[in-house]
Design a binder for these strands. Structure first.
Lengths: 253, 253
DNA sequence: AAGTGGTCTAGACCACCGA
DNA sequence: CGGTGGTCTAGACCACTTC
């Protein structure tokens, strides 16, 4: 014997650490406050830095922390509620929405997207890149794919900016029959990560939308949302709004 | 000089490893096939096991791999498309759905849920635990919260099983005004992880639903879906069905 | 008992940020 | 430049499954 460990730990250190830190975040820190650095924290808890990092990683995944290389680890604000429909059951870029057009190219879509659109794997489609900004922060990047068949009256090629506008404008002349969406977990590709101010591989929520018109899939979009800062909301009933949901445990007990 | 590294690596090893493995999975492995163990793989690629694991972790996150302690690492099938509405805009447990009732208790709801329901933080609510099974696999666990005010005619207390049935039955007598949903990334709590046959902390998609009736939130549910195996679909138009979307790159080029 | 993935350590160096 | 988080190593031991 010697060690009176009747407790039978059984719980991984990083898991226990995570709970401890999570509670400390609620009770001893303010949003935006910067934590001690990883080496100090690890020493304070008597674990290796790798173990401490495992706990921080989880907390970042859950949107409790934000870490930035060269800067430090800060307490994250509650996740933003980001409306993704179908309250706004409309064509992308119609009316007032929070998207900015970044660029536009005409190229073959990746295989999975071509399958969604029902186009051949090598058919060129209009590909519009957009960015969604909320509260001064880039929260999503999107690639919107529009087959030429959906916008047949497009005049001769223009600059990327006007090209994108022209595609969207003609899209809006079609009658939208409906749309459907799918959400899954992914990791940010290098390009997306850069735009979202994250490192490659950061967890993202991938929202795939199909737009139907004339009995066909007239357009499809793949939007990549920061999973750490966003909560995707699908409003349906004309009901109250809630912008955040974080526990009130801040100073509950 | 000495080493002709004009390329300027700059790309982390684990990231490169991930791409290599991902391609190998497409071209050299079948779904369900079991990979060499981590020590062998690490040796084969000339990296430490921790580095190899970082790559495997990402691939598992993306639903390409499935790892099980004591067993091995296998190639995962494409993610399941799981319908979560609003095609089935109805009360939970109504008609044919893929949920099984596990149990039922009457207890105060956690603070965030109480806020959704508009009940006091210490008011007891009916709490029904359910499980969703698809293709023989448990893909989600749910806690459904129903304030007593929504089901006032409930007869005296019964066994948990009949209790749950009674609550659902009375819920169905109300007229459903609508519902709204939110999706965010989370990590599985110990209890949920066990039910989903995952380790604690596994990435999950948390779907929060509010059910409206009589101008109030009559019920709320928090459902936890396995993020590695599920793609949440929000059908809207009466359109075609797609059950999986994985790239056809299996034997493309 | 043998083999798997999961946890943990104690170091090292690198890329990035800000003063 | 110093300080931060990010990557990487080469080990060790543990928990679990299977035979």
């Amino acid at each position: 014997m010697g060690t009176t460990q009747l407790e039978a730990v059984q719980e991984p250190k990083y898991w226990h650490l995570k709970t401890v830190l999570n509670d400390a975040l609620d009770s001893e820190f303010e949003v935006g406050e910067i934590l001690p650095n990883e080496r100090d924290l690890a020493a304070r808890f008597g674990v290796a830095r790798a173990t401490l990092r495992q706990a921080l990683e989880q907390l970042e995944l859950e949107g409790r922390l934000q870490r930035r290389r060269g800067v430090g680890t800060t307490v994250a604000p509650p996740r933003m509620g980001v409306a993704v429909g179908p309250t706004t059951n409309a064509w992308p870029g119609a009316g007032r929405d929070s998207w900015n057009t970044i660029g536009c190219v005409e190229a073959p879509a990746p295989a999975p997207v071509a399958a969604l659109l029902g186009t051949g794997p090598d058919d060129a489609v209009h590909t519009i890149r957009r960015e969604r900004v909320m509260q001064g922060q880039s929260v999503a990047t999107e690639l919107l794919y529009v087959p030429p068949a959906s916008v047949p009256n497009l005049s001769g090629l223009l600059t990327p900016a006007t090209h994108a506008q022209a595609v969207l404008r003609e899209l809006h002349t079609l009658e939208l029959d409906g749309d459907d969406r799918a959400v899954e977990l992914g990791s940010a590709r290098a390009e997306d990560a850069k735009q979202l101010d994250r490192l490659p591989g950061a967890p993202v929520l991938v929202l795939t939308t199909r737009y139907y018109a004339g009995g066909r899939v007239a357009a499809a979009s793949v939007a990549t949302y920061r999973a750490d800062t966003c909560r995707l909301t699908f409003g349906d009933s004309g009901a109250v709004e809630v912008t955040h949901h974080q526990p009130e445990s801040r100073q509950a007990s």
